[in-house]
Write a protein that binds this DNA or RNA. Structure first.
Lengths: 337, 337
DNA sequence: TATTTTGCCGGGAACGCTCTCACAAATAAA
DNA sequence: TTTATTTGTGAGAGCGTTCCCGGCAAAATA
């Protein structure tokens, strides 16, 4: 490794003790102005850099927080991560990033090999088919604060940050109904995930409120990708009864749906309405533009991180549950005109 | 911090020395099978986790690499980061992420406060207006391997990984010429950046090869965003002589250009051709679909990281320069038909 | 003047681990 | 049997900090 000057070097040069140097560098009061200045001068001259590992070992706390994400190469997660980073940076924390690729195995491997002793806290969005909750529980029990966001486990008591999936879905479906669509299908996320269920519940609640029948075959659970959306839509179109609107669990699936409709020359909006969820920039670019439910991704990331840091700073925190509102953004894909 | 069992605890229980425990856990040969098994059993029972900071301090090397990126919430960088993460994970390295928000000040602040002693290496894409090269030089001189990718500084001798910007731009413009466009403008990235210049050079070389005149007013330097592309395009359209094709330095700018053309009811392709650079998924979604030059983002990330790890493992490396080919993807926006 | 307070500093243990060296016991070679 | 080699283990220093404790002079108070 690179060899930098240490406080011992500074102490030797100034013929003072290492403790004094340490105090001077940390700007503690117990040191005279002159020696402090001398120390800082020598430190600058030697290009002194504090050894993070030594500090962490001595103090018992690193300024690192671990982030576990299913993926980062889409709008939502990259924006969340940007928000996390913003909060961490402003509070002097570093981010150690882990990506699970939506794989439960990988998530498990990461957690097991996680050098948890070098992290002050953990921010996690569980992978879609995750079943590693007991491992998280173990980490929490050991005293390491953990905050979950977006995809949260149902059976762990700790802080969570999510968007209002139920009301977002509810509003989306009500909007479709208000615009004259009567046969509304839902292409959902993977079964078993909390946010999938909440969005389904919002969908169902809107149907019930308006006295629309519920058709099981019009709720299709699958993955998050554009291809999943395309496949789900084809299944719907090939069914006995064709819906006249599709509410998708996210924008990628909605875009997949739109591509499927386009390839069959079905006019989006006029013949079949489409609403997504996320407000991916793509939704504004695609033709026709996609009506969607906006999630405050940046804010969710920032808030999650701030909450975690709060927990790190005062232990014995009481878990909080933060819910961000989701906002309907009406565009062309859901207007019959 | 969380309190975990240490090797001392294990040693005390088994009445052996800490050195033996250390050896057993690291699976060194210098320990008998029985004691090793006993140690592992006790370690598992106590839920022993190695203290990363202590290990790093004693060994003089962490398994952390720092990543400095201008931003991550777009296709290119989030995909590069995914590639980096893949390589790091498979080699047992952790990623510490820093984001500069395209700000030179922020980049400088990050570098200065970088706890460089806790990083084995650094992977960086400099921010657009970066002028902090001397700081990087200092880090390199101190013995910390640094690999630059995508946006590389021109005056630092170390390994770099980039795509073939010159030939990508050259092919894009040749393609436009081959499709009958004769007045080709270029909306470029920020002036002074290596990759901006290379793409401009490729653009100019293609014009020269085909004996097209070069018009300074048809080369506009600005930022990377969609809004920049929109603004640049409006300037071109409002100029004395209107171009019949626009080659944009990236897809975001190209999409901005398309939006500007659409809002003026200019038919993209037929009246004015557009070519981008990146192969952002949006380029396939937008109507008409956008012809672009694909960059192998994931591979660039993976390769950069592997190169860095190679440098970490054997010091006194000789700098390498890796260039990935860029590939033209023809779609609708550049076809007159 | 005697005593307490204050400001400044040094000594040294501690954090949890790795690694070198030394040494005894077991084995192989002479 | 003697000598050399291998194998398994322990002792202890060291990595670069922080932090508690105590000392000592100067200043403030009695």
């Amino acid at each position: 490794m690179n060899h930098y000057a240490t406080i011992k070097d500074i102490a030797r040069i100034l013929k003072i003790s290492t403790s004094t140097v340490s105090r001077a560098l940390r700007d503690t009061y117990d040191v005279s102005k002159e020696t402090k200045e001398k120390v800082l001068a020598v430190a600058a001259e030697l290009n002194y850099k504090p050894n993070y590992n030594a500090t962490a070992l001595a103090r018992g706390s690193t300024y690192n927080i671990g982030i576990i994400l299913p993926m980062i190469n889409n709008y939502y997660f990259s924006t969340v991560l940007t928000g996390i980073q913003e909060a961490a940076y402003s509070k002097g924390f570093n981010i150690v990033l882990f990506i699970t690729n939506n794989s439960a195995e990988r998530e498990l491997a990461i957690i097991q090999n996680l050098f948890i002793t070098s992290l002050d806290g953990l921010l996690v969005c569980i992978s879609s088919d995750s079943d590693s909750c007991s491992h998280f529980q173990e980490i929490i029990d050991s005293g390491c604060p953990v905050v979950f966001f977006d995809r949260v486990p149902s059976n762990i008591k700790t802080s969570t940050v999510i968007q209002d999936d139920f009301n977002g879905a509810f509003e989306a479906v009500e909007h479709l109904i208000a615009n004259g669509y009567t046969r509304i299908a839902h292409i959902a996320g993977p079964q078993g995930m909390v946010f999938t269920e909440r969005r389904v519940e919002g969908y169902l609640a809107a149907l019930q409120k308006n006295n629309f029948p519920i058709r099981k075959e019009w709720i299709i659970y699958s993955g998050f990708s554009q291809e999943d959306g395309e496949r789900d839509t084809c299944r719907l179109l090939d069914g006995k009864e064709r819906p006249d609107a599709i509410f998708a669990a996210n924008d990628r699936k909605a875009i997949g749906a739109m591509l499927a409709l386009k390839s069959r020359n079905i006019r989006i909006g006029k013949e079949i309405g489409v609403v997504g969820f996320t407000n991916d920039p793509m939704s504004a670019i695609i033709t026709p533009s996609l009506t969607t439910v906006a999630e405050p991704a940046f804010e969710i990331g920032r808030e999650s991180c701030e909450l975690l840091i709060k927990h790190i700073k005062k232990k014995n925190f009481i878990p909080e549950e933060k819910v961000f509102p989701a906002k309907l953004i009406v565009r062309e894909s859901s207007i019959k005109k």
